[in-house]
C-alpha cells in the first residue's frame, strides 16, 4: 500500500504521482483530497485527488514543489512508499441536474483539482468550456486531459508563450461579454485568481464554486485551523468543504491566513536544503 507506481514531471515545478491505494480508489469522488506525510517526522500536507481508478486501485496526485514538504515528496521515486496517506477527505462536489453548461477555470496547479470535476461533468453530458492558465507555456498543465473533457478549451499565459497573453479572467470577461450563458462557473487556482473570477461572475449573477486551500493539519474537523469565513459563518474547509460558494467566501481573510507561517516555512526549507546538500537525514 501507498507505493508510488508512476511518477511524471509535468513542468519545472509540478509532478504527478500515481499511488497504489485500492480501498481509497474505491471510495474517492471528485472534490475530495488526501493528506500525505513523506516521512516519520513529516508535516501533514493536503493534496487534491486529481484522478482515481477503482479497477486499478490507484489515486493520482499532482503537486507543485513550493516548500520543504512538497520538495521532499518530489524526491521520492517509483517503488517508494508514502509514510502516511489518508483519505478520501472533504465533501465530494455535486451538481444539480439543472446544470447543463459549465465554465471551468483553472490557474497553475489549480487545474489538477479542477480536472476530476470537469471529467465527471463531461461524463454526465454537461457542456463545458474551460479556461486554463499559467505563467508561461511550460506551466500550463493537463492540457490534453482537459481538452478531452471540454467542448472548448482556452489557454492563457502571462507572457503569451502559449495561447493568449493575459489572465484567465480576460477570457472569462470576453466569453460573458459575447453573450455566453453558463449555469455554473467552477474556479480553482491561486486565491487572488478565484477572488477576481468571483468579482466578475457576481456581476453576471452566475453561481460560482471555488475550492479553498487553507493550511490544514488533521483534515478531520478536529483542529479548526482550516477555518474560512463563508457568508459570515466559520466553516472548516476539511469537513465542510473544500468547495464553497465563491460569492460568499472572504478571500482577503483567506489570503492572510495562508501567509501565516511564511517566515517559518522559509526557514524549514533552508534547513532542509542545507541537510540535503550534506546528504543528511532529511533527504528523501
Amino acid at each position: 500500500m501507498n507505493e508510488i507506481l508512476e511518477k511524471r514531471q509535468l513542468n519545472p515545478t509540478v509532478k504527478l504521482m500515481v499511488i497504489n491505494s485500492p480501498l481509497m480508489a474505491k471510495k474517492a469522488k471528485p472534490g475530495q483530497f488526501v493528506i500525505v506525510r513523506v516521512n516519520e517526522n513529516g508535516e501533514r500536507i493536503p493534496l487534491t485527488i486529481a484522478d482515481y481508478n477503482a479497477e486499478k486501485g490507484t489515486i493520482t496526485i499532482i503537486f507543485q514543489e513550493v516548500g520543504m514538504s512538497t520538495k521532499a515528496l518530489g524526491k521520492l521515486n517509483v517503488g517508494d512508499r508514502l509514510h502516511d496517506f489518508v483519505g478520501p477527505l472533504g465533501v465530494p462536489v455535486e451538481f444539480s441536474p439543472d446544470v447543463k453548461r459549465v465554465l471551468a477555470i483553472g490557474g497553475g496547479v489549480g487545474v489538477a483539482p479542477l480536472y476530476p470535476k470537469v471529467k465527471m461533468l463531461h461524463k454526465n453530458g454537461v457542456k463545458i468550456d474551460s479556461i486554463i492558465g499559467g505563467r508561461s507555456s511550460e506551466y500550463v498543465i493537463l492540457e490534453d486531459e482537459m481538452r478531452a473533457v471540454s467542448d472548448n478549451l482556452y489557454i492563457t499565459t502571462d507572457d503569451g508563450s502559449k495561447g493568449r497573453k493575459g489572465f484567465v479572467t480576460d477570457v472569462l470577461k470576453e466569453l460573458l461579454n459575447n453573450g455566453n450563458k453558463y449555469d455554473e462557473v467552477i474556479a480553482i487556482g491561486p486565491l487572488i485568481m478565484m477572488k477576481m473570477v468571483c468579482q466578475i461572475t457576481k456581476e453576471y449573477n452566475i453561481p460560482t464554486m471555488v475550492s479553498m486551500n487553507p493550511i490544514m493539519i488533521d483534515g478531520t474537523g478536529m483542529c479548526g485551523g482550516c477555518r474560512v469565513s463563508v457568508g459570515g459563518e466559520i466553516k472548516f474547509a476539511c469537513v465542510d468543504g473544500p468547495a464553497f460558494d465563491g460569492h460568499k467566501v472572504d478571500f482577503d481573510e483567506a489570503m492572510r491566513r495562508q501567509a501565516m507561517y511564511k517566515d517559518m516555512e522559509k526557514k524549514a526549507l533552508e534547513e532542509y536544503e542545507h541537510q540535503c546538500k550534506l546528504g543528511g537525514i532529511l533527504n528523501g
Partner: peptide, 22 residues
C-alpha cells in the same frame, strides 16, 4: 487549543525545524 496542542504534541513543533510543522 486543539490546534495549538496538536501542533506541539502530535507534530512536535517544539523541535522545529527537525519536525517541520510550525
Amino acid at each position: 487549543a486543539n490546534e495549538f496542542l496538536t501542533r506541539i504534541n502530535l507534530m512536535k513543533a517544539y523541535d522545529f525545524p527537525n519536525h517541520p510543522t510550525p
